Amino acid sequence: MNRDRSIVICDDELELANEIGEFFQSHGWRVSVCGTAKDVRAILSRGFAPLCLLTDLRLKEEDGTELIAFARTLPPALRPGVCALITGHAADPAVGDNLGADLLYFKPADPFDILADLERYAERVAAQPA
């Protein structure tokens, strides 16, 4: 599967998740928006291996860190290339250790910053030998 420019966005604030999704779509990304970790688990388990998983830290039914931990247990060909957390809890002591995420953003995050980081990552992935 071609993972270039694909992202799964999970936030229980669906309006925010959809806005981020629309932003990425407008820049040529294939986007799946989910409001629950359960939905993300289902998508990833069906074999969709996105370049990026972007999840909120605080989800209603489970922590974003648990979702990232699950994604990292998938076989290499199925796991997201990069896992990113977005949080509004800058004072949370757990945020300091990056929670197992490759990238960490604080709300309100600038979508252009996220896009630039992920575009750079996509370029590195594309440059790697198959």
Rank of each mutant, 00 (worst) to 15 (best):
N2H: 10
R3F: 02
R5E: 09
R5Q: 13
S6T: 15
I7L: 12
V8S: 01
V8G: 00
V8F: 00
V8E: 00
C10G: 10
D11G: 08
D11C: 10
L14T: 13
L16S: 14
A17H: 05
N18H: 05
E19N: 13
G21I: 11
G21V: 13
E22S: 14
F23W: 13
F23V: 12
H27P: 12
W29M: 06
R30V: 12
V31R: 05
V31A: 05
S32K: 10
S32Q: 12
V33C: 14
C34Y: 01
G35N: 06
A37G: 15
A37N: 15
K38N: 09
R41K: 15
R41C: 11
A42C: 11
I43M: 14
I43Y: 07
L44I: 03
S45R: 13
F48N: 02
A49C: 07
P50M: 02
L51R: 02
L51F: 00
C52R: 00
C52S: 09
C52N: 02
L53W: 03
L54C: 12
T55L: 06
T55D: 06
L57D: 07
L57P: 08
R58G: 08
E61Y: 01
E62W: 12
D63T: 14
G64A: 02
T65Y: 04
E66W: 04
A69R: 12
A69N: 10
A71T: 04
A71S: 15
R72Y: 03
T73A: 05
T73M: 12
T73P: 10
L74Y: 03
P75M: 04
P80S: 02
G81K: 00
V82Y: 01
V82N: 00
V82T: 09
C83K: 02
A84S: 14
A84Y: 06
L85W: 05
L85Q: 04
I86G: 10
A91W: 01
A91M: 02
P93E: 09
A94R: 15
A94P: 04
G96H: 10
G96A: 12
L99G: 15
L99I: 10
G100W: 06
L104I: 12
F106N: 03
F106M: 10
K107P: 13
K107D: 11
P108C: 11
P108W: 04
A109E: 11
D110V: 13
L115N: 06
L115D: 11
A116R: 14
A116T: 12
D117K: 04
D117R: 03
D117H: 11
D117Y: 01
L118H: 08
E119N: 12
E123S: 08
R124P: 00
A126F: 09
Q128V: 05
